[in-house]
Every structure is written in C-alpha cells, then in structure tokens.
Design a protein around this nucleic acid. Structure first.
Lengths: 253, 253
DNA sequence: TGGCAGTACTTGTATTTACAAGTTGATTTG
DNA sequence: CAAATCAACTTGTAAATACAAGTACTGCCA
C-alpha cells in the first residue's frame, strides 16, 4: 500500500473568528468539510440527507444544496439521485500535489523540508517565466529556497518568489518543515484560490544535480508555478525541480 | 433568439435526442461553454448579466445562476459581485492540457493530431499502472495511439486505453484532429468529471525517441492518467510521452 | 419462496419573491 | 473644480413551494 505524502496541499480554511460572519451556506460547507477531513465519516459513508441537514441546521433546502454543491465540486462528496451524498475517500486536490514512491512504504515521517536559504528581499530575476504587474515589479520580491528530503535523499528543490507587498516581517519567518501555504494563511490571511503551471522535463545541470544529488544529465521534472490567492491581484511563484527516478508526482483533478 | 439558440445547440454534436432532454440550466451551460471555447468572447470580456440571460433564454435567475456556477467552478468565467461575469482567458483545466511554446507565437492552428494506429480492441497490458475493476478486466479495452504534431515536429505521443463497455462502433471512429474527450462526449454522452495522474521525467528509450524524433536519452515528460467520467465506474486511461525541449505543458488549477 | 407493485424515502429541477451588498457613473453639493 | 452623494445597475443570500425522477425497502400475491 502506497502512502501519500502531501507536499503542497493546503486547505483553504478561515480562522474561527471569521466564521460567524459567513453566510449560512458557507458555514454549513465549512462545518461539513471539517467533519469530512477530520475523518468523522468513514469513507464511502452517507452524509445526512438534505432534509435532515435542513432541520438540523435550521436552513432551507436551497441553502443546504448550495453547501453540498461546493463539497461535490471540490470532490469531498459524490451525490446520487434517490440515494444520498456519499463521502469520498480522497478529496480532489489543487494541481499537482503529492509525491508517491515507486516503491512501497513511504510514510509522512520520512519527509523533511529543509530551508536552503533564508528568505531574502531581492529584485525579480531577469528572465522571469511569468508576466508581472507594475506593482509587483516595483515592489520586488522575497526569495526562498527549500528542498524536500525523502528517506534522506533530496527529491525536490523549490525556489519561491513572494511579491514584497504588505507581508511584514516575512523574511524573519522560518520555513523548516513548514508549508509556505500555511505560513501565508496563518500569518497574513492569504489563501490559495488557484493557479497556473508549466511543466517540462529537462536534463540535470551541474547546479541542479548538486541540489538533487543526481548525475548530470539525468532527467528532471521542472515546474513553473504561479499561485493565485484571495488577495486580489496578489500571486506568488515557484520554480520546482524534482528528481523522479524513485518517486513521481501525483495529483487528482 | 430562441431559434438561434436551438440551431447553435444542434451544431454541437451532442445527439439531438439527448440535448432536448437536458434540463434548462444544463442547456444554458452547454451553450455558453461552447461560445467561450470557440472564442466568441474576447478574453476578459463581460458575459451578459444574469437578468439579461434570464430574459434572453426565458428562464429564471436561479436557473441561470446554476449554469454560471458550473462555468465558474470549471474556470471558464470569474464572477464579481456588483460587476458581472468575466470570461477567463484559460479555462481552469482538467489537469494538464495545453501545449505552449517556450518561444512566442505558437498558435493553435499549428497543432495537428495524428492517429498512429486505428482504435483496436485488445486485452489490457500486463503491467498496467492503474488498478482495474473486474468488469474492466473482463471487457478488455480499445487501444488508440495518437501523436500531436506542432509546427511539423511531434511533441506528444499518447496511448489511450478505453474500457470496451457500451461504446458501440467506437473502433470505427476517427480521431484525426479530434479530441478524445470531445468524441466521448458527443457520441456517448460521456463527460470527464476528474481524474488522477502520475508525472515523471524519464530518459527517451529507443522507441520513444522514434515516436518523438528526439535523441535517445533526451529528457521526456511521462504522464500516466486515469480519467473519471460521469458514467459511474467508467474511467479511461492514457499514457503520454511529451518532448518538452521546445514546448512545455501548461495547465490551470 | 419468488416476483412485483407500492410506498416512502432520496436528490434533481424550476419558479417566485425579497432583500443585501458591491460597482459604476452621473449628479449634486461644497 | 473636486469631493461627496445618489441612483441604477450588478451579483450574493435566502426563503417557500412544487413537482419530477431515481432508489430501496416493504409487503402483498401468485
């Protein structure tokens, strides 16, 4: 049984203080989603029926259906007419998410995130692969290098670029064994809403072969990602090099 | 105007008998989606307002909102309160979809899909990368090899496996310059709802180097995909080899 | 006992109504 | 002239209602 190691999957969840201000269908969605991800429902089990949810939460059916509709769109549940809402085992993810071993027995405990360089405010690279807005260009960015170690060998080398706009004390944060998405969310309330990525296979250069501890010329997966957030016009960027000789990237969509 | 709608829906190759049976919100979704993917709306342009769509198509606002909601969930449009529905440049993709040039000026017209082998009913390969259900195993599959030619050079080589279950006359279909997804949708009403993919970088073997016309040992992108559909328990599968020396795969999420 | 019809559920579709909240541009006011 | 206000849009939220369609179980009847 292969175990999934989630690297970049970060749930967009709001702080509890904001929950009371949310519309009802959203509150219900958050509640049900929480129950599902916490594993309160055995996989494949039935959710309460729409009418039951109505009376339990004192809302009307359209409201319930709106909440369920989002859960379905995001892959948490599957609805079947005449039957009910079935809780899915794996939620649909955002883009490419996890690393799986081509051999068995890869557990989360074997995964380590190591910070190669401290977050540093710099200018944008010359040949940046994505188009930048004026304010992004003017503000510069914070660069951050990390690598992921699986069973002692590096499988992933990631350079992140975060526009230096209203992210106070960002350079002082530590990212050892932390997800960038989590840091953005918990410190600045920035949630990931989607993004764009470019994927290619390249041959390992001298520098990448050092980072990934592989021979020069070995096939390497390269990803260029732009990650959009709930902050309007604010995105951050990542360049990822991945050694897929023993592992591969996996994602649902 | 209603006549116009009817004709446009007829142009779509969804069987006419099925189209008329679709619920209204679905018909509206299909229509708008078609208009968007055909490029009738400049990127970033406004869709008609919800109330306009109501009077144009003689439905109520919840119905319109249901159609727009699906378009939004699938990334075709972005809605902004108080403003309207904005047509997105790139639809939120189903995984990795499109090929983009690393140099500029690669238009869609340069892309050609060539059928390498006719669809052929065969047994499943021995070392199939995904787990198959009993009925899938028993039924066998239809195999189909295609390659995508961009500016005269092959960039993508795809082997598809479609379970041979209730897909009449499938082996007689042609896939020259046609999308497999479109053929499934228009001929059998099978729609893609999601899927799973495994991505890795490999070195070109002798056979892949022939298909992709690249040197042996060149870095090649390999994707193993399982594509789920609205037909319960029915998935199809693809193995994709992609030469990303001059191009890269791009997707939104 | 087996099959079949009925019934009591489930979700799906659709309408109508009402008000809240964000955006935009024209108008009024200082 | 510039800033504030207002009006006329837009989408967002929410309710009540009705019927259609699919599922699963019960219980009757042969």
């Amino acid at each position: 049984m292969l175990l999934c190691v989630y690297l970049l999957l970060n749930e967009c969840k709001l702080a509890e203080s904001d929950i009371s201000k949310l519309p009802q269908h959203r509150k219900l969605y958050e509640l049900l989603r929480k129950h599902i991800v916490e594993g309160n429902y055995p996989e494949g089990s039935m959710l309460s029926s729409e009418n039951e949810l109505c009376s339990i939460h004192q809302v009307t059916r359209p409201t319930v259906r709106q909440a369920l509709s989002r859960l379905e769109a995001e892959g948490y549940i599957v609805k079947r007419q005449g039957k009910g809402s079935i809780v899915r085992s794996l939620p649909k993810g955002i883009g490419i998410l996890s690393i799986q071993g081509t051999t068995s027995g890869v557990g989360k405990h074997n995964l380590e995130t190591r910070q190669i360089s401290k977050p540093e405010a710099v200018r944008w690279p010359e040949d940046f692969p994505f188009e930048l807005s004026e304010i992004e260009k003017e503000s510069g960015c914070v660069m951050l290098e990390r690598s992921r170690i699986l069973d002692g060998s590096p499988v992933l080398y990631e350079i992140s670029f975060i526009p230096n706009i209203n992210i106070p004390r960002f350079t002082q944060k530590s990212f050892e064994n932390k997800s960038l998405f989590d840091v953005m969310r918990t410190n600045y309330g920035i949630e990931v809403t989607g993004g764009q990525q470019k994927i290619m296979a390249i041959s390992a250069t001298e520098s990448t072969s050092q980072y990934l501890q592989c021979p020069i010329g070995a096939p390497i997966l390269k990803l260029l990602r732009k990650i959009d957030t709930n902050r309007h016009g604010y995105s951050f960027y990542s360049t990822i090099y991945c050694n897929t000789s023993d592992f591969y990237l996996e994602g649902s969509f």
